[in-house]
Design a protein around this nucleic acid. Structure first.
Lengths: 136, 136
DNA sequence: AATTACTCTATCTGTTTAATAGAGTAAACA
DNA sequence: TGTTTACTCTATTAAACAGATAGAGTAATT
C-alpha cells in the first residue's frame, strides 16, 4: 500500500511542477489546494529538500520550489525518497539490499525470483516516468 | 513491503508444488523445512484452503495438498488472497476499488495515473506467472 | 525591529503485523 | 469404539509503523 506520505509528496511535487515560472510556493497554499494536513506536508517537503529535489526560501515571499526542471526529476528518485525501497522484499532491492535471515538459499528461493520480476517491472515504469509526465 | 504472511504462503505453496504425487503434507513438515512459525503457518494455509487453492485432510496421514496443478495456479489469485490488492492505491484497484476521499478528480490526479501504470506492470507479471514457475 | 515562514524535536493515538496460547472438532486406524 | 493425530477456530499479545499534532526556535525579508 502506498503511504500517505508518498501520495501527498507526489501531489505536492506535481503542484509545484505545474506552476508558471519557478517562484517559491508556500506550504499553506499547497496544503489547501491538495487537501493535506499542513504540518504533515511540512515534514514531507523537508525531506524532499534535504535530498536535493526541492529548494526553499525563508521569509516573506518564501516557500518551496523545484531545483530542477520537471523533465529531469525521475520517479525512481522520488519514490525512493518518499516510499523507500521499490522492491517488495529487501533481498531483491538495489538500493536497500538486505539478506533474509530466514532463508538460506537466495537463488533457490521462489519468493526471491518472483519479487525480482515484480521489481524489474516497477523499475521500468519509474525509470521512464518523470515529474513532467504527471502534470495534468 | 511484502508481508510475512505472503512470503510464508508462497514458500509453502512452492513446497507443496514440488512434492511428487499429491499426498497431503503436514503443517509441521512445511514449517520445519521453510523456517516458519507453525501456528502462523496454520492460519495462512487455512485461508488458502477457504479460497479453494488448497485442500486438507484430517486425521492420521492428513495434511494440506494442492487442489489444482501448479500450472493452473495463477499468481494474481495467490497474491490477492495473501497480500490483498495488487494496486498500491485503492482508486486504481480492479478487485478492491475504493474512491479516495481526499481527491475530487480521479482523472486529473497525478498519483492515480502513475499508480495505474505500476499496477498494470505488476499485473502483467502476476498474470504470466504460475505456481509451476516458482518451483526451483 | 517586526513579520513571515521555514526548521526541528517530541509526543501521541490508532492500526496493522506477527506471533502465541489454548480449547475444540473431525477423521483415520487398530 | 476409542484413541490418536492433525486440522480448526477464537482470543490475546507485543512490537512496529503510519499519520497526525504541538510547540518552540531560527532565518530571511521588508
Amino acid at each position: 500500500m502506498l503511504s500517505k506520505k508518498t501520495k501527498y509528496g507526489l501531489k505536492a511535487l506535481t503542484y509545484l511542477a505545474a506552476q508558471k515560472g519557478n517562484k517559491p510556493v508556500q506550504i499553506s497554499e499547497i496544503a489547501r489546494h491538495e487537501n493535506i494536513s499542513q504540518k504533515f506536508l511540512e515534514s514531507i517537503l523537508l525531506s524532499l529538500r534535504k535530498t536535493g529535489v526541492l529548494g526553499s526560501k525563508k521569509g516573506k515571499g518564501g516557500g518551496y520550489y523545484l531545483i530542477r526542471d520537471p523533465e529531469e526529476v525521475l520517479m525512481t528518485d522520488v519514490m525512493r525518497i518518499l516510499e523507500g525501497p521499490i522492491a517488495m522484499v529487501p533481498c531483491v532491492s538495489l538500493n536497500f539490499y538486505e539478506k533474509c535471515d530466514d532463508c538460506p538459499d537466495e537463488v533457490g528461493c521462489s519468493v526471491h525470483r518472483l519479487m525480482l520480476k515484480v521489481r524489474d517491472s516497477a523499475l521500468d515504469v519509474y525509470r521512464n516516468t518523470t515529474l513532467a509526465d504527471l502534470i495534468p
